[in-house]
Design a binder for these strands. Sequence first.
RNA 1: GGGCAGUUAGCUCAGGGGGAGAGCGCUUCCUUGACACGGAAGAGGUCGGAGGUUCGAUUCCUCUACUGCCCA
Length: 884
Amino acid sequence: MAEPVQSNLPSAYDPKRAEEKWYDYWIEGRFFEAGQDPEKEPYTIVIPPPNVTGTLHIGHALNNTLQDILIRWKRMQGYDALWLPGMDHAGIATQTRVEAKLREQGLSRHDLGREKFLEEVWKWKAKYAANISQQWRKMGLSLDYSRERFTFDEGLSNAVNEVFVRLYEKGLIYRGKYIINWDPQARTALSDIEVIYKEVKGALYHMDYPLKDGSGKICVATTRPETILGDTAVAVHPDDERYQDLIGKTVVLPLIGREIPIIADEYVDPEFGSGAVKITPAHDPNDFEIGIRHDLPQIIVMDESGMMNEQAGKYQGMDRFECRKQIVKDLQEAGVLTEVEEHTHSVGHSERSGAVVEPYLSTQWFVSMKPLAEKAIQAQKSGEGVRFVPDRFEKIYLHWIENVRDWCISRQLWWGHRIPAWYCDECGEMMVARETPDQCSNCHSSQLRQDEDVLDTWFSSALWPFSTLGWPEETDDLKRYYPTDLLLTAYDIIYFWVARMIFSGLEFTDQKPFKDVLITGLVRDAEGRKMSKSLGNGVDPMEVIEKYGADAMRFMLSTGCTPGNDQRFRWERVESARHFANKIWNASRFALMHLDGVTAEELELSGTLSTADRWILHRLNETIADVTRLLERYDFAETGRVLYNFIWDELCDWYIEFAKLPLYGEDEEAKRVTRAVLAHVLDQSLRLLHPMMPFITEEIWQHLPTAGKSITIASWPSPSDAYHAPESVREMEVLIEAIRAVRNIRAEMEVAPKHEIELLIRPDADTTAAIKNNEPAIRRLCGVSNLTIDPNLERPEKSMTAVVTGAELFLPLAGLVDIEQTVARLNAELKKLNAEVERVEKKLSNQGFVAKAPAHIVEAERKKGEEYKEKREKVLARLAEIRA
RNA sequence: GGGCAGUUAGCUCAGGGGGAGAGCGCUUCCUUGACACGGAAGAGGUCGGAGGUUCGAUUCCUCUACUGCCCA
């Protein structure tokens, strides 16, 4: 694939070319397909399946990038890395969108009928699935497409049925008439967590209900006066002294005249309102409970769309909120409404449609959660649970699972897994079965009807880590890759998904579905607001890739946050990531220019290494160790920072600048060694960076003489003892400090960059060799023509002076010497040194410090103190000389 | 009401018991044979406040203020 171009590589990196080319190459090479080597240890991640009719947003991009980084890294480390892709049929979300499209054509799903409607949905699914696949490609994800799954495909549907039947047979799934959360817009039941509570300004209406015997009245307060139509009692606290005489009496409901009893129940809070509450068992969960205790009638006054029904008398056909207004008006006219108080209370809204949720009495299917939760709690508390990263999310999970209520799993939708229950038209028998039964188990009639409802989408998502691997079949994949190693998701679906996968995994596979859960935050807009369709502040990852390239986006997202915390999306940061890509590109361009025509054999690392060579190899060792350690901790931001600093500040700013001397020089052996070091460091750096920036690293790596088939399967670097050279760090520090000091003087004295100057260096004994060995580099990087290095040299008259660690520098700038400037700089240096010396001496004279601080810290302070003092002596001596 | 985060340079954020960091922005200079998506040299912060632990706190603990999120 590599093209034999080096010298004519363009000077700016063009992401589009590389991205198209290499993704195809990777897929054709099947580098992402797991299971090719049974000797390797497996490492598995299943992707959180995106909603099939959506578009991937920037949150997906973050989530997917992080998984890809880990998978690519593990693959390079020699694991049999499996990243399993797939999508979710997303019941409500998808159905709503298809219905919206039909509405535009003036149609409803009922006009089409169930079968035709589902055909429409499948068409949508096909279109959007293709789109999502395309987005995965663009992001460069190393997914194993040969194992791609869909929550609605045959295997996963079998898993759903299996789970349903097993739970039913265990008595953990039941059907019954209870108060559930009803979405009148989507016309379906919802689970508890699909309801979002918001503070809403409303009113508390106080009403007088007259006693039937005419002996008085009782005042009740409510935020929902329209529910008066469904009242079947008034309740007071049994110990409430105010109402002792009234318990057992009968009141007459205003407006409708129904007679209802006054009952006593512990649930009533005597402190709230008047201490008497109206009871509407069919429209309030607490009232429902009271109704059961007191055997009250349950009167449903609304239909499925939130319109008042035939039980509402003259209000029939009105919308529930319109009805509220009318009822208030009528109550007022009847003189029953005694007070209207401003009142802020919490109102449930549908997570999907946004409609105000109606507590609604309805027959639904439920999962009995207690036993499943118990198992999960037990596992977590015994230390056998999943590891949450960051660990604070474990508490959030535990709190939820410990307080979980039964899960309403039936939905009145068409797009979803049909509930595997059948009813006999003849005898009314209900059958739950894996396969469609052909006759009634009771009366053998063949007149069977399947339950119309479908299951909550999350019911199938809960099985994702094992259903995708073939469960309930004992497949090879299931045996090899399950339990998975990691689940990576944002904190907003811990309850919806993570928790449910955990208890499902434990129940059906007797294993936790994943070892670690890595929780990320959300990607917000530049102002810190949550991205949303209504605000229109979402960022399309494809737009980011189009403008800056996939690698820039990946680097920006993965380094932009710490685990579990939100990050803001800022274009400047993407731009900065692109600059980084471009920097790597150009450093590589430089290297490749000097490797043109060089064979892999010639790049054997041997021979005499320069200071810079030893230093960069030593630093590479440390960087390899750091990056590996940081990835193990899922610390992507630090990983990125370490690589950025190593490549930009050390490799580009210093090593390459030093390397230019031998590379442009005459010494062939030095040239050969430098090329070898440069090629090695570049190769290793590209490998380290590859998980984060896959495209550019492959593009460059393929140009190296030492390249293999693909960097995606190149081995992960490990530190080499041969390059351990801590002394080189000290040497480079001295050189860098000296070069900077000269540049500083040049800048302050406004010496033109092209103007070559004279420089005299008086090194200390222990730095003389390092400085002497790097004479050409000092010349080049300081713009020096005439350089003298001598431990015994005399300070020339009329020269600028600087003191650095390990050496003194003199610049006899003819005609430019500014004594005042030199004195000012030396004084500034002196001030700093005085402060440092004082700080160190204060520390060392503190007996507590010397006695209690770790020995190496004390020793380090002593050493620092000595250095500062030595340096200060020199500064003082130079100042004295100048004054003399 | 309960819980959890955050508060560090102009902005956005890292960091972490022992000399305050990055990116962007800002100032000055430079189109030098990898790169102006660049190079060189700089300016800029008493790490929200108050106590405590410690030889030593920006970092650990407690309280407190403000911001955000989750749960009821």
